[in-house]
Amino acid sequence: MFVGSHVIIYSRDAEADRAFIADVLGFPHVDAGGGWLIFRLPPAEIAVHPTEGDEAHEFYLMCEDIEAALAKVSAAGASVSGEITDAGWGRLASITLPSGARLPVYQPMHPVAYNLPD
C-alpha cells in the first residue's frame, strides 16, 4: 500500500542544511527543481508514544555504533552537540546543522523494526 515516507525538516537556512546533508552526511539525492534537494533516507521505522501534552513529531538518524558514526561525520566537518547520553532505550547525541538546528542521532538498545522482511 505505502511505498515510503517523506520527512520534512523546517530550517532557517534550508540551502545550507541541504548542502550539509548532501556533502557532509553524504545522503544520495535528486534535485526536484531549482536546487530543491530531496534525499534518500536509510530504512525507517515509526513509533507512537503516549503524551499528555501537545502532539509532536520527532526525527532521529539511527546508527549501529554511535561513536563511529559521530567520528565519521565530525571528520567530514559536522559539529556534534554535547556528549553521548544513555537513555536506557538508546544512546543519544545530536549533530548541529549549519542553520543551528540539531539533528538527533541514536544507537538503539532495543529491537529494531527497520530491517524486518516485507
Rank of each mutant, 00 (worst) to 15 (best):
H6Y: 13
S74Q: 14
P111W: 03
A87Q: 14
I38S: 06
A19L: 05
F27L: 14
L37R: 15
R40G: 12
A19K: 08
P98V: 07
S5A: 15
L41H: 12
F59R: 03
G100D: 02
S99P: 03
F59L: 13
A44F: 15
D31S: 03
Y10D: 12
F27T: 00
P43A: 14
L92Q: 07
T96S: 06
H29Q: 05
P43E: 12
A87M: 11
R12I: 04
P50A: 11
V7I: 15
E45T: 10
A47T: 13
H6I: 12
T51Q: 02
P42T: 07
P28R: 00
S11E: 01
D86H: 05
F20S: 00
I95S: 00
P111V: 10
E67I: 11
V24Y: 01
F39R: 02
A71Y: 06
L97Q: 01
I84R: 02
A75R: 10
P43C: 06
G26H: 05
P28S: 04
D65M: 10
G33Y: 01
S79T: 15
G35N: 04
M109N: 14
S79Y: 03
F20D: 03
D118M: 08
A93L: 02
V30A: 08
S79L: 13
W36Y: 13
G4D: 10
R18Y: 01
E45Q: 15
G34N: 08
V3Y: 10
D23N: 12
E55H: 09
A71C: 08
M62D: 07
A68W: 05
Y106Q: 10
V105I: 14
R91M: 10
E45A: 08
R91D: 02
E64F: 06
G88M: 01
V24T: 15
Y114I: 09
V80R: 01
I21W: 01
N115M: 12
G77A: 02
L103G: 05
A19D: 07
I21M: 10
L61H: 09
D65T: 12
R102L: 15
W89Q: 09
H29T: 00
H110W: 08
E83I: 09
E83V: 13
R18M: 14
C63P: 04
P42Q: 09
V24I: 13
P42F: 10
E55N: 12
A32G: 06
M62R: 15
M62H: 12
P28L: 00
L61D: 04
A75N: 04
D31A: 06
I46D: 06
L61E: 01
Y60V: 11
M62L: 15
V24L: 02
A93G: 06
R18G: 07
A44H: 14
D54K: 08
E83L: 09
G35F: 04
H49K: 14
A71K: 15
E58G: 07
P28N: 04
H49M: 13
I95R: 00
F27G: 00
V7K: 03
G4V: 05
G33M: 05
A75K: 10
E64D: 15
A71L: 12
A22I: 03
P104I: 04
A101T: 06
S74I: 04
F20C: 01
I38H: 09
E67N: 11
A87I: 08
H29Y: 08
H6C: 12
F59P: 07
A113T: 13
H110G: 00
